[in-house]
Design a protein around this nucleic acid. Structure first.
Lengths: 240, 240
DNA sequence: GTCTATACAACGATAGAC
DNA sequence: GTCTATCGTTGTATAGAC
């Protein structure tokens, strides 16, 4: 999987997803015409992500959101019942996309090594095209209501379990050397998250998302004690 | 270095550090008697960290800080000029401790492998006893003023450089196999930071800070292609 | 479906009593 | 050195015109 082809596929599926968001949150959205609603909702979420990631969700005033999104104060309230619900809608929105693309891409490859590489790249590529959401979701998760925070934690653990499962699978097949798959999965996730949490650092060093993916795979392969395939023109190399 | 002995040493140096904070911020602290000032300042910082880490610094009202710390609203303003400055003082406070202990512990061991292990353990142990500050510092750094954020970034890069330097040193000595020391240092930092960012996860799984340190060292050793010494009763093992 | 105008609670900050 | 009382500002949220 390459980043550019992933990006194309992602953009195509965006429109459909936005419509799903509208239909799912029909209760609190007072605007009933899909044409209006989807357009404005998208604009609101995009603006909210942009502003929140600068100053934090709590510090972002609805007056600022109104001004920046082009809708009036009253207009905003046609799309959500209150600021708390906006937070929830945004979280939902991202998780919808995440789920959709996970199902689409995973389980394509059969052997553990290929599956693992797909999962790593999928996470990184997705967090690249949806950087604002991933950053937001990480930084603002603790401000969710009790039950919504529970959903967020489940999401975090769920994606960790995918990695732990792949590691376990590889161990059983005798191709991975791993003592504690869950703990190893935690460390892998930590490395993946650093990509969108410290984006400025990597931008400044001209590290592309594909460079980063390759580097992470080298670490993982070294730990698991297996070979890693270098991309493009480079030939197959054994690490260590 | 073991966690318990580290903890003892750290607790001893706390009092001295708080006095330093008092003297350094003498301009904005209106209370001049050290006896009063150090006691209250410590209490204010501890409370602010506790409250901020629940709701975020911005959402923490000064009324809540007043109530929880036992000082009145007016009383608080004898210790800082405004909420922004409180944020700065807290950041400063942590960096002071971090710096103090780095200088104290590092450069004790001569060979790269030992130095690296010391640096890893130091970071993890320190983030364990000062968890509230590390979490706060990571999550609230983006709300600092332009120039204070610059200091925070410098601190982040500085500690990364320590690791990059150690890796480079080991490579020159021929004991580490590492293509890009800076990128590798980034990933090491990401693993170290996960310990205090996802503390709840590891607590729930009964992973101790020493377990975690050992695990991180196994990953690093595997990547660098060198041996790792297991702690306690276990014998020396070659990874891979 | 969107706007302007407004309500009212909570915020950071300060003055002046003790 | 610390308190209480109060200021002006800004926050979320809504009512009613268009």
């Amino acid at each position: 999987m390459e980043f550019e082809s992933f990006k194309r596929e992602y953009l195509l599926s965006m429109e459909a997803i936005c419509e799903q968001i509208f239909q799912k949150n029909g209760d609190s959205i007072k605007v009933k015409k899909q044409k209006f609603a989807v357009k404005n909702l998208t604009r609101i979420i995009d603006t909210a992500l942009k502003l929140s990631n600068k100053t934090g969700f709590h510090a972002m005033g609805l007056r600022a959101l109104s001004k920046e999104s082009g809708l009036s104060m009253g207009g905003l309230y046609a799309y959500f019942e209150g600021k708390d619900e906006l937070l929830r809608v945004i979280q939902d929105y991202g998780r919808q996309v995440l789920l959709e693309l996970m199902e689409k891409h995973m389980a394509k490859e059969g052997e553990p090594r290929g599956k693992l590489e797909t999962a790593v790249k999928l996470h990184l590529f997705l967090s690249e095209v949806m950087h604002d959401w991933f950053f937001f979701s990480y930084m603002e998760a603790r401000f969710l209501s009790r039950e919504d925070r529970k959903s967020a934690i489940e999401g975090e653990l769920q994606s960790e379990e995918i990695f732990a499962g792949l590691l376990e699978e590889g161990r059983k097949a005798g191709v991975f050397r791993v003592a504690d798959p869950v703990l190893a999965a935690s460390l892998i996730k930590a490395m993946l998250q650093d990509w969108y949490l410290k984006r400025w650092k990597y931008t400044g060093r001209s590290v592309s998302v594909e460079d980063y993916a390759e580097h992470v795979m080298e670490w993982i392969s070294a730990y698991l004690g297996c070979t890693v395939s270098k991309r493009d023109d480079a030939d197959e190399t054994v690490i260590r």
